[in-house]
Design a protein around this nucleic acid. Structure first.
Length: 261
DNA sequence: ATGCCCCCGGTTCGGGGA
């Protein structure tokens, strides 16, 4: 089974590109972020025609997440618990039945957090990460296969960006963000990509500006985290960077893993 | 040091992204 994550930067602008990638890559589950659409306007019929069940958690104009799955959803939960005031659509969990039990998959879009001196931005990011850590600790007590897929807006290590010096002071790279990402992993998650390679220069995002893609000035901020029970069934991870070369690309590319189920 | 570019809403620009 192939499980993917991709920040598509707007479903309206990316409709054809997303459809083409789905046809070629044929994931069983695709977690999408930044759909930038309300649920009613999400073009679900296009994906249903490819055999996907579609669940969205959108809002007007920005943010928004979705899960496409060839397996039917047993259960869907929208929104990250822990703050009744938070109205930003950044979190959706789907529950599935596999041959040997349950599989939980989350599509998450973690706040960017810039600028760091604006509490409405950076503090919101850090509080959101604290809530994600608390929610994940609860879920891990179930001792079930769980995959947290998404755009974390965190550059975990120096080797995950082209020029670490230029990212100093950025919300994606500040110690408060990186330590919380480490804290999340230390609950018991395995980061899919880093199980197979520690080489640098593997990125999932290249800015539209300043010719970042042709110069390979990228950052690795889209991650797949596996619970211990999911890690037992993990069979490898890859990044479809070739999609960044397509016409009208997202600034992010898909990352996916193989899962034995 | 800042902006480059892109998407959205619904307008000819501002908010948001990273």
């Amino acid at each position: 089974m192939k499980i993917a994550s991709w920040n598509i930067n707007g479903i309206k602008a990316r409709h054809d590109v997303v459809l083409e990638w789905l046809k070629q890559a044929d994931p069983d589950i695709a977690c999408l972020q930044e759909i930038k659409s309300v649920d009613e306007n999400f073009p679900r019929a296009s994906f249903e025609a490819l055999g996907y069940n579609v669940e969205t958690h959108g809002q007007k104009g920005f943010n928004g997440v979705a899960i496409l799955s060839k397996m039917p959803f047993d259960e869907v939960d929208r929104g990250l618990p822990g703050d009744e005031e938070d109205e930003q659509a950044r979190f959706i969990e789907g529950v599935f039945s596999t041959r040997d039990g349950v599989l939980r998959v989350v599509s998450l879009y973690l706040p960017n957090g810039n600028p760091p001196d604006d509490p409405r931005k950076f503090d919101y990011k850090l509080r959101w990460m604290d809530r994600l850590i608390a929610w994940s600790a609860d879920r891990l007590e179930l001792e079930e296969p769980l995959i947290l897929a998404g755009d974390y807006n965190v550059i975990p290590q120096d080797e995950d960006c082209w020029d670490p010096a230029s990212w100093q002071g950025d919300a994606l790279f500040l110690p408060q963000s990186r330590s919380r990402f480490e804290q999340l992993k230390s609950l018991g998650f395995t980061e899919a990509l880093r199980t197979s390679t520690h080489e640098d220069g593997i990125y999932t995002f290249w800015d539209y500006q300043a010719g970042a893609w042709p110069k390979n000035h990228g950052i690795r901020i889209d991650h797949l985290l596996l619970s211990p029970e999911a890690t037992l069934r993990f069979e490898g991870c890859s990044v479809d960077s070739y999609v960044r070369d397509w016409e009208k690309p997202s600034d992010h590319v898909p990352i996916w893993l193989n899962y034995a189920a």
